[in-house]
Each structure stands twice: as C-alpha cells, then as structure tokens.
Design a binder for these strands. Structure first.
Lengths: 176, 176
DNA sequence: TGCAAATTTATGTACATACATTTAATGTCG
DNA sequence: CGACATTAAATGTATGTACATAAATTTGCA
C-alpha cells in the first residue's frame, strides 16, 4: 500500500483541482475518486512519518496489533484477521520485523503448526517513540469537527452496506 | 494498491465489526481507519471487476486517461500528472498495456526524448465492454442519497485542507 | 492403527509501488 | 562549438499485495 504525490506534500483542496479533471459525471463518481484519492493522500502522510522510523505502514500496523496482544503471543492467522489489508502476506511482513529485532518468532508449543509471534521491548519502545513524536495526529482529520467526523464515519459505513451474499465471519484464532 | 478481503466479499456494516476492534479512541481515529478500510474495500470491488477483463486497476486508469486524450497522444509525464496514484511507475504499466496491444508507443517526432502513447481501437473496445457491463456502478455509493454523496465529498475535501507549505503545481506536459 | 482431510504457515510468481539511479536527447551559455 | 545542466523516460532494488501452491503438523474417522 504505497502512495505517492511528488517530492513534497502539496497544498490541497478541491478534488477537481488535484486531478486535472474539471467536471465529474455526478457526485457519486466524484465520491469514488475522492475517496480513493483522499485515502492515498492520508496514507502518504502516514508512510512518510513512519519512514523516518524505518517502518513501512504495514509493518507499523502489524506491530500495533502485536502490542495489543502483548504479553500474549499472536499467530499469523490472528494478524491476518486483525489487519486492515487482509490476505496480504503477513508472513513476509513479520520476516522484515524479525530482521529488525522488533518481533520474535517461536514455534508454538502444543501446536507445532502454529508460530508464536511476540513484540520485543525494542518494538514497544519504537511504537512509543512514534506515538510520542505526535506525527500521527497530523492526519488531516483535525480539520473536522467531532460532529463532522461522526458524519463521515456514518457515510463510509453506509457505502459498505451489504447488498447481498452471506459469508460467515470466521472465528478468531489463538494459540494455546 | 492491492486490497484484500478473503475468498468472497463479505457482508458489511460497522467498522467496529469489520476489524475486531470494539472501540476507538475517538471519532477521529475511527475516521482514519474507516477511510483506509472503505477505500480498500471499494478498490477490491473494482479490481475484482476488472480482473475478469484482464486488467488491473492501474492499467484501467491509464487506459481511461488515454481515451480522454484520444486521438491526441499522451506522454508518460502527462499520465503521471493525471494519475490518482502518482509517482507510480507509469512506464511499466504502459509496458503491460503495450504487450496486450491496448496502447501503442512511438517516439515523439520533434522531441525524441518523449514518447507518444495512444490507445488502440482494441483498447477503446475493451473500455466500452467494461462500462457496458455495468460493473462499475456497483461500487457502494449507490447506497448514498445525492445529498449524502455531496456531503461526503465536502468532508473529504476538508480533510485534505492545506495547513501549510507552498508547492507550485507544475504545468501540464504535452508533446509537440 | 493408518491414512485422508483439514489446519497453519511458508513459498513462488506476477504485478504494483516508492525511491534512487541511469540513459538519452535537448537546451544553455561560455 | 563544447561543457554542463535540464528534461523525459526507463531501469534497478526493496517492499507490498493477490493468488496459487507447497510443506509440515494435527485431526478425524474408518
């Protein structure tokens, strides 16, 4: 999930100006493009912030999940279940974190198919440094009032309204 | 920009349920996660639709820009300028489209550094097939009223409000 | 017990992306 | 004219993602 936007964050406002498309068919088409663009814009900001700490966005997200489990271990299956971008290759992201000594991987006693993944003290320290830096608060949502943030959440939830097909949510995995 | 979500699209509603996180610090934190998640959800739908036509999402977007220029050519610089995910490697996406005979690449007469990229009749036909299929309209925004779509656009634009730093927008490239 | 099915993770391939560097053509200015 | 910066595109490397498949282990059941 990498994003973009030139050397330096640009000044921004109307989506019509961001893209060089003066008009849209309707507000619906515009909303789709605006949503994609704004999400990318936001993720760029986040990725840029994390980069100075040597982390990518997926690595950061995994690390945060592991802290949530701490001191209990997580399995790869649990990470996949909790991740925003699922299906992505949790194994390989954990590889990178392990190389940086931010997590440990040990075969789960009692189920040798599973792997216990734990965040290390170094990993906890890194997360704290990032959060203390205050970089995470500069994500654009501070321009919204609390009521507007609530509205936005309601609208986004509405977009994801199910129009069909059932599919049971699987149970949460855990190692023991 | 690839997304996810298991074998089959799941039924959806509240972001709290999607992710297994029962509470958020505030509506702002929730909005950030909701925006990322919803954008990924939407892009998965689109990517799935395009896959049956042998296109990835970036390839489709490039193709649409080229149609907008048609019958005039575009340069790589113009594609980068128009793309939602900028900086991305337009060259290599054009490689794939060229392999599929959906675009042509010819050195620009008059400026041999530049390359004229044009959509082929096959490319135009493919775009038309995709649009005729009606797949593009099933993107979730149909659950919003026109007024809600307008609100959503306003909120997203507000998130991207500039808090600082100037950075001039470069001029649009063209080949001649 | 014995062996097929299911579970859990890891690996392989193709594509996309972020970023740095390279290559080629053009422009500029002494 | 010729050295040097500038521009346009392509290439290289590391990472991430989608999807298919493999490998190891455990489970279920005849």
């Amino acid at each position: 999930m990498y994003i973009n936007l030139h050397p330096i964050p640009l000044p921004h406002m109307r989506i019509e100006d961001e893209i060089k498309q003066p008009t849209f068919r309707d507000e619906y088409q515009k909303a789709v493009i605006n949503l994609t663009y704004t999400s990318g814009w936001l993720q760029l900001r986040q990725a840029t912030a994390f980069k100075s700490f040597g982390l990518t966005l997926p690595q950061f997200n995994i690390l945060r999940i592991l802290r949530g489990q701490h001191p209990r271990p997580a399995t790869v299956a649990l990470l996949i279940d909790r991740m925003l971008d699922k299906t992505s290759n949790a194994s390989r992201i954990v590889d990178r974190l392990e190389e940086k000594k931010l997590v440990t991987r040990t075969v789960c006693p009692g189920n040798r198919r599973a792997v216990d993944i734990r965040i290390t003290p170094a990993g906890l320290d890194l997360l704290k440094s990032i959060e203390d830096s205050g970089l995470m608060e500069k994500n654009g949502t501070q321009h919204l009032t609390p009521e507007e943030a609530r509205q936005l959440n309601a609208l986004l939830d509405k977009i994801r309204t199910d129009d069909d097909e059932g599919g049971a949510t699987p149970d949460l995995p855990s190692c023991e």
